[in-house]
């Protein structure tokens, strides 16, 4: 799999303060790559360096195999950035905003018109193209901002905390459009300090703290840092002791225990065997009242590794 983005020993210093510390990572083609870290961990600094908004103190960044400092025009044409702070002109219509930003990337004439309409349609603002953003909700502004970033069809789209301070409807809309963009072949870098979002959409995640990547991998791999088991708690109607030998035979299950009207099953985390467990219980005519999976989430991973919460 080819790398869309390669970061080699990237360092950014502001005076004595090291914001990004010798960071190395690769983003592969077709990934939704998540940057997870607390506020001030260095996520935005890294992104601003990828977007050439900040100078690199040390190290290098390659986009599609080309150094972004040496090929700055190439880099700009192939990166679309949705910044953390909304960057749109309030006194231009939605259409004019997108056309303006797409024009900066060199789109002209009918192609410019076509792509502008396409981008607005994509973020669900096709019918609002003549409205002014000052009347928009936070979520709509965010979506317009995304349209501005994608109209020139970049290979890599960077979204820096795109769901901060917006309503749940717009949030879902944005998460869905991230998936859609990814299906269309875009590689996406997504930063957030909302663990749930990163867990939901990202295919690979880097946990960043104090400017360093402290762990990297799929969410399963990251969770496996803490434990490779999960517990499934099944609430049942009866508290009579049941014969649960059959459950132990299911792949991945390492222990089964009944505590009154709860069956606690310890299983290997990477094996998805919930269906088979439930099927077996139905076959044994056990009446199920609730099913709960006790697995570590990324928040627990972060807490365990750093000793701090993501939202401190």
């Amino acid at each position: 799999m080819s790398h869309v983005l390669e970061i080699r020993q990237l360092t950014k210093k502001f005076g004595d303060f090291v914001a990004v510390d010798n960071m190395s990572l690769n983003v592969r083609e077709g990934e939704i790559f998540g940057f997870l870290g607390a506020n001030g961990a260095g996520k935005s600094t890294t992104i601003n360096m990828i977007a050439s908004l900040l100078r690199v103190t040390k190290g290098e960044i390659n986009l599609l195999g080309k150094n972004i400092e040496k090929h700055s025009k190439f880099a700009k044409m192939n990166i679309g950035i949705v910044p953390q702070d909304i960057a749109i002109y309030e006194d231009m219509t939605a259409y004019e905003n997108v056309r303006f930003f797409a024009g900066l990337y060199g789109l002209r004439g009918s192609l410019l018109r076509e792509r502008t309409e396409e981008a607005l349609e994509f973020v669900g603002l096709g019918d609002k193209s003549k409205s002014y953003p000052k009347n928009f909700s936070g979520g709509m502004k965010r979506r317009l901002n995304i349209a501005c970033a994608i109209a020139h069809r970049p290979k890599l789209i960077i979204m820096d905390e795109p769901t901060v301070g917006i309503d749940p409807h717009s949030r879902n809309y944005i998460l869905n459009s991230v998936r859609k963009l990814n299906d269309m072949g875009c590689t996406i870098i997504y930063t957030s300090h909302y663990m749930e979002e990163v867990e939901e959409i990202c295919t690979r995640i880097a946990i960043v703290d104090h400017g360093k990547v402290i762990a990297e991998g799929s969410k399963e791999q990251l969770k496996a840092i803490i434990t490779d088991t999960k517990e499934i708690w099944i609430g049942i109607r009866t508290d009579e002791p049941l014969n649960l030998q059959a459950l132990k035979a299911i792949a991945g299950v390492t222990a089964v225990l009944q505590e009154e009207n709860t069956i606690k099953i310890v299983s290997k985390a990477e094996i998805n065997n919930l269906n088979r467990i439930i099927q077996q219980l139905i076959k044994d005519q056990v009446e199920i009242r609730s099913v709960e999976e006790q697995a570590p989430n990324l928040e627990t991973v972060f807490l365990t590794l750093t000793g701090r919460n993501l939202r401190d």
Partner: peptide
């Protein structure tokens, strides 16, 4: 603390 794939040593 020995985790599943990491060893963590902290001085606070």
């Amino acid at each position: 603390r020995v985790l599943n794939t990491f060893i963590k040593a902290v001085v606070t």
